[in-house]
Design a binder for these strands. Structure first.
Lengths: 122, 122
DNA sequence: CAGCATCCGTTGCGATACTG
DNA sequence: CAGTATCGCAACGGATGCTG
């Protein structure tokens, strides 16, 4: 007989803590965008189609607070601000790569399973 | 000069597709719970503190549809139903382990960064 | 026991308009 | 250019009660 699940299985789980929000809509993509070096605010808006300045700004502020990115403002006209990954933020690229590899390898299977069960949507 | 970001950088990105919801509140934990073998509905509710039957049921149904878990009902009194990982679902344990490893390694740094910027909350 | 139905609060996200 | 301020919706998750 298998042992019962521990009721406190996740109480101390660091991953549980709502500390880093890479599960939200944009954070992971922002990190991917910054992979090749610093980027400007408006540069980020291009691949992140449809992100509004407000939301992008919120995401970046949260990431700064968590030490994932840095913000550097240059005194120029017009204004220039660049965001870059910190070493901490860069370290996130590894687990992200693992997730992307899984997706590429197994997403067809997921798609097939979905098509199989309840042929039309559901 | 760095090349500009591709506007279509994420348009074909499989990870972008809202196909698998391991980023939601419960899916990843359910997978972790099923790691050691099949579990009953009520067994899952124990470590997943505070999950309501409705939400757990919804999550499990979505996971079944995506081919991550199987559901087996036994004709007994009282009712018994067991959920188990499919090979596909089990394969998710790998990237999940990578994410957990990152958390354990770097979450103290995140916490420190957060404490440093805006000492009290914010 | 294993769920489904209904209602409801919170939150994330987006649209739009405006400022340094 | 790089944001902030306001508004509003829709989706997710939770609470409660009922059924096979």
């Amino acid at each position: 007989m298998r042992e019962p699940l521990d009721a406190d299985m996740f109480t101390g789980c660091t991953t549980t803590a709502p500390l880093i929000q890479i599960g939200d809509k944009w954070t992971a993509k922002i990190i991917a965008c910054l992979r090749g070096g610093p980027r400007r605010f408006s540069e980020l808006q291009v691949p992140l189609r449809g992100v509004t300045p407000k939301v992008l700004s919120e995401s970046l502020r949260a990431m700064r607070r968590d030490g994932l990115v840095t913000r550097t403002a240059y005194d120029e006209i017009p204004l220039r601000v660049e965001y870059a990954l910190t070493p901490l933020g860069r370290s996130l690229l590894e687990p992200m790569a693992a997730c992307c590899a899984w997706s590429e390898a197994h997403l067809p299977a997921v798609r097939a399973a979905r098509d199989a069960s309840g042929a039309s949507g559901r």
